[in-house]
Design a binder for these strands. Structure first.
Lengths: 120, 120
DNA sequence: AATACATTTGCAAATTAGTGCAAATGAGTA
DNA sequence: TACTCATTTGCACTAATTTGCAAATGTATT
């Protein structure tokens, strides 16, 4: 039961919803610095929320050199699918700015990988 | 955005999940005292959680004489459907006891309405 | 090894949420 | 009006969450 509650709790925070939505939009893994730039929220805040999302099993991480990439956990669990579907149902207008910032940021990738770091 | 977050936050509490699940199982409105008996949680706690669920727009209330009945809000909103579907996806084993207690309690209704009150 | 940079962590302060009890409300009934 | 009973509320208390900053970690580069 705890695992279900933990997932729901994760979804009760705006930053975490924005992170999930970003991962849903991009359909691929995102580097921490890309998420930071897209959401314009301090790194350490993002980092802590990413940790929670990971603990809840919603996202997975993968290190590639200096960068750490996060992606939605792959699973065919009905519960997980439903909550992702709920996140997708939130109107796009709320994420417009984030989506555009992400798009811009992703253009700076080389060979599909993040190469620049944080906008200082 | 706030309304979506509020709904998710509501789902992050075990008592509220149990209440929702009860309403999903019974497919009909339930009186506060029936919920209390089914969950074996103090009335005032249930009452406060019901208030939160109502504020979040997840459930609706209806008074009938001495009794107040709660039911899932009727809507065809995609977001709402998804979260209900998530709640339904939680394995039934977690709710077995509650479900049985509710069944017993509902047998005490007369003409489909709650007539007894609280087990003191 | 020394430096640079991406990311995480530990800790304190601020905020928010949950629980328990006693008292209040509101409807029905005598 | 007084009384009973279902339900809610106010308040005090405790527990959990969030945030900000500075320091730490880990990897790559020179």
């Amino acid at each position: 039961m705890k695992t279900y509650l933990q997932k729901f709790k994760c979804l009760g925070d705006e930053t975490r919803i924005r992170i999930l939505r970003l991962l849903l939009i991009s359909k691929e893994e995102l580097c921490v610095c890309e998420i930071v730039d897209a959401l314009e929220i301090p790194v350490y805040t993002i980092s802590k929320h990413l940790k929670e999302l990971k603990n809840a099993g919603l996202i997975s991480e993968k290190r590639e050199g200096k960068f750490i990439f996060y992606s939605l956990t792959k699973t065919d669990d009905a519960f997980f699918e439903s909550i992702l579907s709920a996140v997708s149902s939130i109107p796009g207008e709320f994420f417009k700015t984030n989506k555009e910032a992400l798009k811009k940021r992703l253009k700076l990738r080389e060979n599909g990988a993040c190469v620049i770091g944080m906008k200082q």
